[in-house]
Computed example of a mutant assay.
Amino acid sequence: MGWFSFIILGLIAGAIAKLILPGKQGGGWIATLILGLIGALIGGWLAGLIFNIGYDDFWSIQSWLIAIIGAIIVLLIWGFITRSRSRRS
C-alpha cells in the first residue's frame, strides 16, 4: 500500500473510531483524524510485531481492522491524558 492510501486509510479509521467510542473525546475532528493516522501507524506496527501481519491492500478488511483498532487505542489513550489534565486544572 502506498503512502497516500495509507494516509487516507488512517484518516478514515480515525473518523470511524470517533464514531465507535462513546462520550466526548478531547480535541476536535482534525485532532481526531490526526490521532487516527497515528493509530493506524501504531496498529500496523503492533500487528506486525505481535501477530506478524500487516497492511495488505487498501480494500482488505484486515487493513481496515488494524487501522480502526489502532485508532481506537490511540483515542482512548488521548482521552485519558486530556481527562486527567482537565481534572488537575
Rank of each mutant, 00 (worst) to 15 (best):
I66K: 00
L65M: 14
T82V: 10
W29C: 04
L35S: 03
I34R: 01
L21Y: 03
R87N: 12
F58L: 14
I81F: 12
F6S: 08
I50P: 02
G39Y: 10
I73M: 13
F6P: 01
D56W: 01
L41K: 04
I30C: 02
L65I: 13
D56H: 08
G28F: 09
D56K: 13
G14T: 05
T32L: 04
L35I: 07
L46Q: 08
K18Q: 12
T82M: 06
A17F: 08
G26N: 05
S5H: 03
G27N: 06
V74C: 09
I53N: 05
G36S: 14
I53R: 09
A40S: 14
W29P: 07
G36I: 02
I77H: 09
I20L: 13
F51K: 01
I16A: 13
A15C: 08
L19C: 09
G23I: 06
W64Q: 13
I30E: 04
A17P: 05
I34P: 00
R85Y: 12
G48Q: 09
I34E: 03
N52Y: 02
L11F: 10
I68T: 02
I16Y: 04
S84H: 10
L33G: 15
R87T: 06
L21W: 01
I72H: 05
P22Y: 03
D57N: 15
A71P: 07
A31F: 03
A40K: 00
T82F: 03
I68F: 02
I72K: 06
G10D: 04
G14P: 09
I69R: 00
Q25R: 08
A67C: 02
W59K: 14
Q25G: 12
I16H: 05
A40G: 14
G28E: 07
R88H: 10
W3C: 05
G26T: 10
Q25K: 07
T82Y: 01
Q25W: 01
W29M: 14
S86F: 11
N52S: 15
K24Y: 09
L76E: 13
I50L: 15
